[in-house]
Amino acid sequence: MEKILISIIIPTYNREHLIGNTLKSLVNQTYQNWECIVVDDGSTDNTKNIIESYRNNDNRFSFYKREILPKGASHCRNIGLSKAKGQFVVFLDSDDELLEFCLENRIKKSIQFPERDFYVFPMLVEKNGAVFEEKKIPVSENYLIEFLRYKLYWGIMCTFWDIQFLKKINGFNIHYPRLNDPEIHIRAMLESTNNFKVFNNEIPDSKYIKGETKDYSSLAKKYFETLQLFITDILNYLETYNKKELKFYLKSYLIVWLRHFLKFANPKDKHTLLSFFKKKRVINSTEFYLVKLYLWLDLKKNKIASKIKSLIIKNIEPNAK
């Protein structure tokens, strides 16, 4: 078992105050045959020196810089993937951590259930320095549908990838400002055709550190820009894999926009996005006009408008089948 090398790939940007905990969680692993590839996205703080201090004491760490555009974590992850030598890959954000038994646990499960394209494990979620949730993964007959309807039951550190499969699907799409994780997992599930294993009842073996969003207007703009790329690509994937009938589940991504980003978006973006979903036939004409009504009601700040808005969402939200 100890002969199996695991590659851990970490993109980072200005994380001098956090990345030390992430790297320390690797040093503390009970399974020791790993390499850590850190790819910097143009940091202007002391991040490089923190990483260098670990690399000087442990040759399992390596450090690279992203030299060409585009900027972003996904591009850095793909650079790391091109350097990786392991049989399996874990992507870890530079503010998250692996619990000390994580890699040992994952190797054992990969041996117990061999030749899967990827494996998925539960995680803990930490907010404001306190672990407040064990993010269990619900049992589902079709995780592809769950991700298409924005039920994102696991994060990027939860997945244990076979490196050959990961390279086969060409890693991450480097052009998205947001939605990188659901995109790669949807694409992976389409390509894998159920040759993956989800461990619903396992003890969480990683910890996602939930940060505080400060600039919601910027986030809303990035989500708006990404959605048009994301929806177009996913529709093309569904057509390629003869699953076009599943496209209506993607309306959930519009609903997320309405629920969480609407008040931070400019009026033009609101109507552009609605027309886009109609043009792509993700929503039908009735749903289009219902959402137009929703946008109008959003301008009305009273209890009746809020109740009608809730009914509209309930009417168009897709359910799993």
Rank of each mutant, 00 (worst) to 15 (best):
F165S: 01
Y249I: 00
L18S: 09
L18E: 09
L297D: 05
A84F: 01
R187F: 10
N56W: 11
F264C: 02
R281V: 11
N14M: 06
L290V: 10
A130D: 14
D205G: 06
T232C: 02
N242W: 08
G20R: 03
L23M: 02
L274M: 06
V39T: 01
K321Q: 15
L103I: 10
V256S: 04
E16N: 03
T12Y: 08
A305F: 05
Y119I: 00
I174T: 10
I4G: 04
L18R: 11
H271M: 11
Y289W: 15
Y216K: 12
K168M: 06
I231S: 02
V131S: 07
P11F: 03
L246S: 06
N57K: 11
Y119C: 00
N49M: 10
A265N: 06
N319Y: 13
L69T: 06
L262S: 07
E191M: 12
I203L: 13
N242T: 13
L274G: 00
R77L: 01
K65E: 14
Y294C: 07
N78D: 05
H175E: 12
H271A: 01
K151P: 13
T286W: 11
R187P: 09
K24D: 04
E202T: 12
N128H: 10
N194M: 12
I37E: 00
L258V: 04
L81D: 05
C36I: 09
K307M: 12
S94W: 04
K309Q: 07
D45S: 05
E16M: 02
F248M: 05
L227C: 07
A188S: 11
I156S: 01
E97L: 12
E115V: 08
V282Y: 02
Q164W: 12
I312K: 08
S275D: 14
T47A: 04
Q228M: 11
S7L: 01
N170H: 08
F63C: 02
